[in-house]
């Protein structure tokens, strides 16, 4: 085993019955361990050329006739490997609901208003220190059908590539002090000791005075310590 295998003491299990959609979608047979080959120690590379001018500013990239509504926030953090080294020049993709808790997605029929000036998707590339920064609007909570009176806590979806395909990670960032976290089976599906890693921290140094509050959210990927094993 490479020491940067997926750490199943922190990742949620496939089957978590409180989250109802897992019941018929979770793989039921044990995973088969795989040694890493060149296919696992490589991965797609998306750099600055995959990012458009306002892609890291969700308060601007969906404007049609005015400013989006809601609380402006800066969301920033570092992408690191498990040894604490920054992962530079890696693509970060995010998507989120608007301030009213409504996604622009056609499938979302929640009875809350769309914002004509907010799209909700963005991307950027980390800098030399592994840091990414987005300007956005604080997403609203919204109801969903998992169980009676179920509400998703405020969250932003993140998608990361890191240095190879085994570093691939899709996760969600939450906000400190959210009372809905204790009732959310998606968040609660994470083993207890690791849940706090999904909660961003209010960070005064990231705020922009007279303009926006700031939250820090660091993300740790596995890194590239895997040694491709010799063939035959």
């Amino acid at each position: 085993m490479n020491h940067n295998q997926r750490d199943w003491e922190v990742h949620p299990p496939y089957l978590y019955p409180d989250y109802k959609s897992t019941v018929f979608r979770a793989p039921s047979k044990p995973l088969i361990p795989m040694k890493h080959t060149l296919s696992e120690s490589t991965g797609p590379v998306y750099g600055q050329d995959s990012v458009g001018q306002f892609d890291n500013d969700l308060t601007k990239n969906g404007i049609r006739n005015g400013e989006p509504l809601g609380e402006r926030i800066v969301v920033s953090g570092r992408i690191l490997d498990i040894d604490g080294r920054p992962i530079k020049n890696t693509l970060v993709e995010i998507w989120q609901a608007n301030a009213a808790g409504r996604y622009i997605h056609k499938v979302d029929q929640h009875n809350a208003p769309l914002d004509p000036n907010f799209f909700g998707g963005g991307r950027c590339v980390t800098d030399e220190n592994g840091r990414y920064t987005f300007m956005t609007i604080k997403p609203g909570a919204y109801p969903w059908g998992n169980h009676p009176n179920a509400w998703r806590p405020n969250h932003i979806h993140f998608s990361l590539f890191g240095s190879n395909i085994t570093n691939r990670l899709v996760t969600q960032m939450y906000f400190p002090g959210d009372p809905l976290l204790q009732y959310d089976p998606i968040y609660q599906g994470v083993p207890e000791k690791a849940r706090h890693l999904l909660v961003s921290q209010f960070d005064l140094s990231l705020t922009q005075p007279d303009f926006a509050l700031g939250y820090n959210f660091d993300i740790v990927l596995r890194g590239h310590n895997a040694t491709p094993f010799e063939n035959q």
């Binding site: 949620p12 989250y19 040894d83 993709e93 998507w95 979806h157 990670l169 990927l221």
Partner: peptide, 18 residues
């Protein structure tokens, strides 16, 4: 450091990822 836990991509990834 501890790996950041995974979360589901959810039903609304399309406008963000594809």
């Amino acid at each position: 450091m501890t790996q950041t836990p995974s979360q589901t991509v959810g039903p609304y990834f399309a406008y963000g990822l594809s």
